[in-house]
Nucleic acid binder design. Structure first.
Length: 674
DNA sequence: GGTAACTGGGTTTTT
DNA sequence: CCCAGTTACC
């Protein structure tokens, strides 16, 4: 698929016009299922056919999966490694640049990359000195994770703290000055310990691009920049794109403002809408011929699609009429779970494999009841989204130990590994770290003196771990280092976790996966930026003959499609989420999420609305309330659906006499002999 | 002084 | 189910 002429032949007129557009800045407004990826790949191929060197084409995406997918399709099959298109996620490309020039960014060569959980941990250790612990004058202080959210929101939207607080966290306003102090401290802390968080990766790249000397050099590396999913850029990423192509020459942005669903991490579709202001000569090409869904599904999609001036778009179906979406009203959530199972099985009987069907949920816990029902009926499923493998405690332990080896100045990693040992809490761990002077050279060598601050009964166990980590640091290959780190943790893990054997098996796979990386640093960065969804994910794809129903969050389902899609919980408070209902922009985002969810379906779309919801309350009986149908299913939307009611739950029999006992009595009479 | 064990309150989405 | 605050132990 690398002959440009052959590739172009497979495109429709709009796609071909986009793929072969000459010159200035181009925005491809690509509705769901309109062949966006194919068009972008074709454009890369066409650019090459026009004489551009592949290595001077930069392709930016938001997920590793999208990057790998497109690069695999866009690379010349006969090309050598030196002549490849440069591509990856914004964060991965930023990391590559910073890593290659770490000294210019005043970073150690093996700097650690903090994932969001690490960031929250750092803030957790810093916040007590800023009066952000416990209840302050009767008010509850923001939790560490909330502080991290606020910090990142400020950075990624280039917005001041007070504005972020009043817009999104009004209840934190009383702590504005404490938060300001905490964030100042946090930045200094990261710099002192050679730490870089996700936001820093982008900030450092932007700073280099904006620099009078470094900027032109970095800009000059590329002739063409292709950006996928442009509606998901945040303010910093929008700046990076602008700095990469200041006059718009060679810039192609692909996106759909109606599919922007990442506002919570600072993205804003306004950046896509503002492209025509940034570039007066911007050309807009719409892709609206949909190759994914049936007409009857798209009619609903077009009704719920939010439209903006100048970027209106209506999808037209290339795959025939199909059946209208079916809205199933269910008595309660248990009925909904049974109903989904029944319909999944019915579709299965009718020839759809389980893996041709997906249940898409707004929030990971919306499928809790369903998962019980699926297990009870023996329907196999895999779940995407929600908790990640790298968030499991033992995995974090292992990663922390690896980070000590890669970057001994990583205070947070030390803190975690020391506290892993029974009897060592925050205070003792802090004392040990202070004695080691981890910011100085070779802290592992100072262990013997640091041991003095521990009570005798703890010193030997902790010492054994530290000494083994020291040995791991001496080893050359990544594989040996990973194995040595795992060995170092053997005893403390065995003491901490009841199911240590199972957790060890996970870590062995993790160590194996890391062994493939050129260095421990690269393995760690890879895991932070692209965390495996599950332990089995590390061992490669599950067996091909396995057939699993897919449960996924709508966010994780972006860009994917299934012949049959089930959308549960279409009641106000769940879809749209009540967390988002406080601001108008939050509600708009929920509407876009619903649009994304609906447009995942190829043939059949089932919508479920439980009308009675249970609330689990501690200390009192479970309560229930009656739910409103989702406000997204207004008159116009409902007109595109067929309606039905789930079979009501079977009535509970209350027999006047014990039924089984009477059967037994009757049976007993049969055995009476003579 | 410092840690573990217990208890009570809150729970979105993820590069 | 995770986190923060409290109490009970070393």
């Amino acid at each position: 698929m690398t002959d440009p002429a052959a590739v172009l032949d497979t495109l429709n007129d709009d796609q071909r016009r986009a793929a072969t557009y000459r010159g200035g800045p181009l925005l491809i407004l690509a509705g769901a299922g309109t062949g966006k990826t194919g068009t972008l790949v074709a454009r890369a191929a066409w650019l090459r056919s026009q004489g551009l060197q592949p290595s001077r084409i930069l392709l930016l995406t938001f997920t590793r999966r999208a990057a790998d997918d497109m690069l695999a399709r866009a690379q010349p099959s006969d090309g050598d490694a030196a002549d490849r298109i440069v591509g990856g996620t914004f964060h991965a490309v930023a990391h590559r640049i910073i890593r290659a020039h770490s000294e210019a960014f005043a970073l150690p060569p093996e700097f650690s990359v903090l994932d969001p959980a690490d960031t929250a941990d750092v803030l957790d250790t810093l916040r007590d000195v800023h009066g952000l612990v416990g209840t302050d004058s009767g008010r509850r202080t923001p939790r560490a994770a909330t502080c991290a959210e606020i910090y990142s929101r400020c950075v990624s939207t280039s917005t001041g703290l007070s504005e972020v607080l009043s817009a999104g966290y009004p209840w934190c306003l009383p702590f504005a000055s404490q938060l300001a102090g905490l964030f100042t401290d946090f930045v200094g802390y990261k710099r002192r310990h050679g730490l870089v968080d996700f936001d820093d990766l982008l900030l450092l790249w932007r700073a280099a691009l904006a620099d009078a000397a470094a900027g032109p050099a970095l800009r000059g590396l590329f002739d063409a920049v292709l950006v996928d999913e442009y509606q998901d850029v945040n303010a910093v990423q929008a700046d990076i794109v602008r700095l990469l192509r200041p006059d718009g020459e060679g810039l192609t942005c692909v996106g759909d403002d109606a599919q922007a669903i990442y506002a919570f991490r600072g993205a804003d579709p306004a950046h896509l809408r503002a492209l025509s202001l940034t570039y007066a000569d911007l050309t807009l090409i719409r892709l609206s011929r949909n190759y994914r869904s049936r007409h009857a599904v798209l009619r609903l999609a077009n009704v719920i699609r939010p439209q903006h001036d100048g970027l209106e778009l209506a999808l037209t179906a290339e795959r025939g009429q199909g059946q209208p979406p079916l809205l199933i009203r269910c008595h309660d959530e248990a009925t909904q779970a049974r109903e989904i199972c029944a319909r999944v099985l019915a579709e299965h009987e009718a020839g759809a494999r389980f893996c041709d069907q997906a249940v898409l949920v707004r929030s990971a816990n919306h499928s809790d009841l369903l998962e019980l029902e699926l297990s009870a009926r023996g329907i196999p499923y895999v779940k995407y989204g929600g908790l990640r493998f790298t968030e499991a405690a033992h995995v974090k332990d292992f990663l922390a130990a690896a980070r000590i080896v890669a970057n001994p100045a990583d205070d947070l990693a030390w803190f975690r590994v020391l506290r892993l040992h029974e009897g060592v809490g925050p205070v003792l761990a802090r004392r040990v770290i202070d004695m080691l002077e981890i910011a100085g050279p070779e802290p592992l060598r100072r262990w013997p003196s640091a041991e003095q601050v521990l009570p005798r009964r703890l010193a030997s166990a902790v010492g054994a771990t530290i000494r083994e980590l020291g040995k791991a640091a001496e080893l050359a290959s990544t594989a040996e280092r990973a194995a040595a780190i795992l060995a170092a943790l053997h005893d403390p893990l065995a003491a901490r976790y009841a199911d240590a054997a199972a957790r060890r098996a996970d870590l062995e796979r993790l160590a194996d996966a890391a062994a493939g990386s050129p260095s421990l640093h690269d393995a760690l960065v890879q895991l932070a930026l692209d965390p495996p969804v599950s332990a089995s994910d590390l061992a490669g794809r599950p067996r091909l003959d396995d057939d699993f129903l897919v449960i996924s969050t709508v966010h994780s389902a972006k860009g994917l499609e299934w012949p049959v899609v089930h959308l549960p919980q279409l009641v106000d408070g769940a879809v749209p989420s009540d967390m988002a209902l406080t601001t108008p922009s939050g509600l708009e985002e929920e509407q876009r999420l619903f649009y994304v969810a609906v447009t995942r379906a190829r043939d059949r779309l089932f919508l479920y609305a439980p009308l009675r919801m249970h609330h689990h309350r501690r200390g009192s009986d479970d309560r229930h309330s009656y739910a409103q149908l989702s406000r997204f299913l207004d008159r116009a939307a409902l007109a595109q659906c067929e309606l039905t009611d789930a079979v009501p739950p079977r009535p509970v029999l209350v027999p006047a006499a014990p039924l089984a006992a009477s059967v037994d009595r009757d049976l007993a009479s049969l055995w009476r002999v003579g």
